[in-house]
Design a binder for these strands. Structure first.
Lengths: 355, 355
DNA sequence: TAAAAAAGTGTGTGCGCACACAAATATAAA
DNA sequence: TTTATATTTGTGTGCGCACACACTTTTTTA
């Protein structure tokens, strides 16, 4: 039903008729211990169900874990990238007394050199571990090479680069997220309604990820609605500003008035749904991420579904993975797909209010 | 960007030119301290940004937190009630070194006296806190009265009794969960398809909760589909066994062949969806909770939507709430509605596999 | 003005563990 | 047999804090 009072190394020492020094030796497998006493101590560990007190150990060791994170910059507090940062802050806060400290760095998606510069600053810090959102693939590869040279563990968050030596990838299954978006949009459309996929490329980041999402989306219709004559077109807007997005939408909708549903493969669905409302267009919209803009549009009905990839949780989990690796030498699951939450007007508040 | 090395009480003592004894006195506001030194120490606390090391404090205090949980019994490991138990186990495990220990108790939904017996056993343990799923309202009220007499804090999980002195309620917004179920079921039905609501009463537990869920469900249709001529009937089966459920379903479906959708207000949707598959009925099904039976039926398409109320998370959170109250004297939000996750075939694996 | 009481401050111990070092015992070499 | 050398085992210190207690200085009382 529960454990009795915790047993300490002193308890072990009493049981085995040795001093705590010997206990220490067998626990850490260092120094010399006679075979007989070693056996006896091992018996004590087993019989008394010894588990070292992590608090005491941490206090005694007094070591420090420095974690650096490198994400795209959050332009405003309403930006998507402020959320993973909140997550890592929160995660590290929980391990503060265990000696963990955090330095956050951010790079501009318009400027690869800012990535390089910050990556180099991180290397100068010689951290115990790194949390990286590798949106610039080439520069990220150079960075992790250097990390590996220095034996610094790193985890990817939000975006993945496959077959690397990252401790773990914590983020969405991109293809699956597109597939789910397909199912959701389809569920609110008529069988032959035309669909527009809107991709945006903010800066110079790798757009391969967006393509994977789009493929997942299209896969849904290929596999489930093969024979309908609907059009599914996609446009890629090389910006995320309202003005540019609006211009591209106008251009597209005038030429394609039959469009009934829109899938936005990033966190800017609210820009598009506001455009719809402004022009009294009754289009269905599915997008990603619970940023404030999307929440508002979800609530007033301009967005139908938001898929959330738990960005805060990603940050928290990344920190925890590093901690477990430092302290317990635990090797995590190399790919940890976060749950893809389906958010609608009716359940959005529960997600926002909790904690 | 980050905190410098953590400041200790010794650092404070050096800054304020006093001994750690005086620091201790102002920190805990005990004993006598001259005004001048108190000011100086407070300045030190502020300037050096002192935060006590919880690890050291815990170690020094050496106190013990005994937590008791009282839930309905999980008949098999596949039952719903095994999930909150997993949660509290997990939560307590994380606080083990902080002196927290857990005793779990369970009662039979067929036997109020088992509740009373276990409640009394808990009182004998004189725990620091209690986590309770108050499904027997009358007996729960008697229990919490005694807890209050003894000044033992308690939190409700999964089910709530309003206006009581529980530290917090952690669980679903029942009405909202029914409402969401309504939206989901409606989204896969034609506008005039008839609907069956299936409630089950396993034992002698309070069925008011089920009624709230049903009201939420009906509200959705009242508010959003007012003028359709569809029938929404409900039956309440006084059992959760397959045989009894099947008999009731047969009785109902023969009389109501127009039924196209079923809402199951508990975790037994899989029993009903299996019945449908067995009899080649193409009905849409919405139910609650990611128990293995529902997961399987979701995957093979017999269930369309499952709403999950994060039972494991409820357990973890309840433990955390108690811990924060014990250690930081934090009063939590009195009502913490958990997110209601919408689970479909396409995203169910992410929920199961993560961690 | 001396003794008693109160106010103010510092020191020592222990929580459970890691680690450096000292001590004791056993074995090998001289 | 004695000394040198491994091998084995025990002790002391500190991590940051809480708390008991001892000590010093001031104030009050007789």
């Amino acid at each position: 039903m529960a454990k009795n009072k915790k047993t300490t190394i002193q308890d072990l020492a009493n049981y085995a008729n040795v001093s705590i020094g010997t206990i220490d030796r067998v626990l850490h497998n260092r120094g010399k211990v006679s075979h007989a006493k070693r056996k006896k101590v091992e018996e004590a560990i087993d019989k008394l169900d010894f588990n070292p007190n992590l608090l005491a150990r941490t206090l005694a060791l007094g070591r420090q874990f420095t974690v650096c994170s490198l994400f795209p910059e959050a332009v405003t507090t309403e930006s998507y990238w402020s959320l993973p940062k909140i997550g890592v802050d929160q995660g590290v806060e929980g391990f503060r007394d265990f000696g963990m400290e955090l330095y956050t760095y951010q790079y501009s998606l318009f400027d690869e050199s800012s990535f390089v510069k910050n990556a180099s600053a991180i290397l100068d810090k010689n951290p115990s571990g790194v949390i990286l959102a590798p949106l610039f693939e080439k520069e990220s590869l150079e960075f992790i090479t250097k990390l590996e040279e220095r034996n610094i563990p790193y985890v990817f968050i939000d975006a993945n680069i496959k077959n690397k030596k990252n401790l773990s990838y914590i983020g969405p299954d991109l293809k699956g997220s597109g597939y789910i978006a397909g199912k959701l949009l389809n569920s609110v459309l008529g069988p032959s309604d035309d669909i527009l996929i809107v991709n945006m490329v903010k800066g110079f980041e790798n757009s391969a990820h967006t393509a994977v999402v789009e493929n997942g989306f299209r896969d849904y219709f290929k596999q489930n609605e093969p024979q309908t004559g609907r059009n599914i077109n996609s446009i890629t807007i090389p910006s995320t500003t309202e003005i540019e997005v609006n211009r591209e939408l106008t251009t597209y909708y005038i030429k394609n008035p039959g469009t009934k549903g829109v899938f936005v493969s990033n966190s800017r669905a609210h820009i598009i749904s506001r455009y719809h409302a402004f022009h009294r267009l009754e289009l269905k919209v599915v997008g990603f991420d619970l940023v404030p803009g999307n929440v508002a549009e979800l609530k007033n009905g301009n967005i139908d579904y938001i898929i959330s990839q738990r960005p805060v949780f990603q940050g928290v989990t990344a920190v925890k993975v590093l901690f477990d690796f430092f302290v317990y030498k635990k090797s995590p699951n190399p790919i940890q797909y976060v749950p893809l939450d389906i958010i609608i007007k009716e359940n959005v508040d529960y997600y926002i209010n909790f904690q």
